[in-house]
């Protein structure tokens, strides 16, 4: 993995990405704008670093750009393009979204908005403990409108039974595990971007809002909720940044789980600080909060990942020393 991009260039790209995302609310337009800014080259040159800046911009702006398709396809060794989408695991899962049953493949997974415009979908399926990769015609998965709690986020659930003759098997290049890890690290950055936005919003509200003749930010109960959010965010951020130097899949799972926990806790605390106004559709908060719920479920959640991580440790009889000085 070559991570070659200079810090100054990254900062510039990050600003460009954020601006493009803020200007293009439609997922298709946002994807196109990011491709125009060189997202594909960046992902090639510096996959982890590039995904980190792009996904934290996704989180901060709450954009629905479908960059996760690119991160996973790239980690699976494919040439990425706007014509290619990926079927992601079912909510809270990290296992492939499909199972081979005789001649057919049964799909239960999630797709992004890109499925509607893509020509081809990448589908990973599991049989007898091994993961096979295939491509299918994306039209087989189209037509299910994005609904759910966060229609703006444009992730949707797909269930389908695909006949064997519609599947083109492909030679495995990247492994499923490395694709899961790449997705988890990217999504961790997105969740932390969501969390930082929610914390900033709640902080400003606490300073501006006056009750009992003083800013609510002066009440210790409010201060400690915001402080706890920051602590969780910083702890998770450090692990997510650490993934840049260490491709260990266990560290990636930890980063995603910690970021999910940080973002969910921040959402709860921020909503309490915002109180009534934070419960309205009028205030923007609910968009970030709902996106957090959705992103948390992708590639294992703060609820499911600790179980996976614990089982992995139990199968090894000990805990690896992951973080080295």
């Amino acid at each position: 993995m070559s991570e070659l991009v200079e810090a100054a260039d990254l900062a510039l790209l990050a600003n460009g990405f954020e601006a493009a995302m803020a200007e293009a609310p439609d997922p298709g337009e946002a994807d196109q704008a990011l491709y125009d800014l060189g997202w594909a080259d960046l992902l090639d040159a510096a996959p982890t670093q590039g995904a980190a800046i792009a996904f934290s911009a996704l989180g901060k702006t709450n954009s629905a750009a479908s960059l996760l398709d690119d991160v996973v396809a790239h980690a699976l060794g494919m040439d990425i393009s706007l014509a290619l989408c990926v079927v992601f695991p079912a909510p809270h899962q990290t296992i492939p979204p499909a199972c081979r049953h005789g001649n057919a493949v049964v799909v239960d997974g999630l797709v992004s908005a890109r499925v509607e415009s893509a020509a081809t979908a990448v589908l990973a399926s599991e049989a007898e403990g091994s993961v096979g990769l295939a491509t299918i015609d994306a039209t087989l998965l189209q037509g299910s409108a994005a609904g759910g709690v966060d229609p703006g986020g444009a992730f949707r659930r797909v269930t389908a039974e695909i006949p064997a003759d519609a599947i083109s098997l492909m030679a495995n290049q990247g492994t499923w595990d490395s694709a899961v890890a790449a997705a988890q690290v990217a999504l961790a950055h997105q969740l932390l971007g969501e969390a930082r936005w929610m914390l900033a919003e709640a902080r400003q509200h606490a300073i501006d809002r006056v009750q009992f003749g003083r800013a609510v930010a002066s009440f210790q109960a409010i201060r400690h909720k915001l402080a706890e959010s920051l602590v969780l965010i910083e702890g998770a951020e450090s692990v997510a940044q650490g993934c840049l130097h260490d491709p260990d899949p266990l560290l990636a799972a930890l980063a995603k789980s910690l970021a999910g926990q940080a973002a969910l806790t921040t959402a709860t605390h921020a909503q309490q600080v915002l109180a009534g106004i934070g419960f309205t559709a009028e205030h923007q908060f609910h968009r970030w909060m709902k996106r957090t719920l959705v992103i948390d479920t992708l590639f294992g959640s703060a609820g499911s990942l600790p179980i996976e991580i614990g089982n992995k440790l139990l199968s090894q009889d000990s805990a690896p020393r992951l973080i080295q000085l």
């Binding site: 930890l254 789980s257 990942l305 600790p306 179980i307 996976e308 991580i309 614990g310 089982n311 440790l313 139990l314 805990a319």
Partner: peptide, 8 residues
């Protein structure tokens, strides 16, 4: 598993 995962 969950308790161990969370502690880790």
């Amino acid at each position: 598993a969950r308790a161990l995962g969370q502690a880790f």
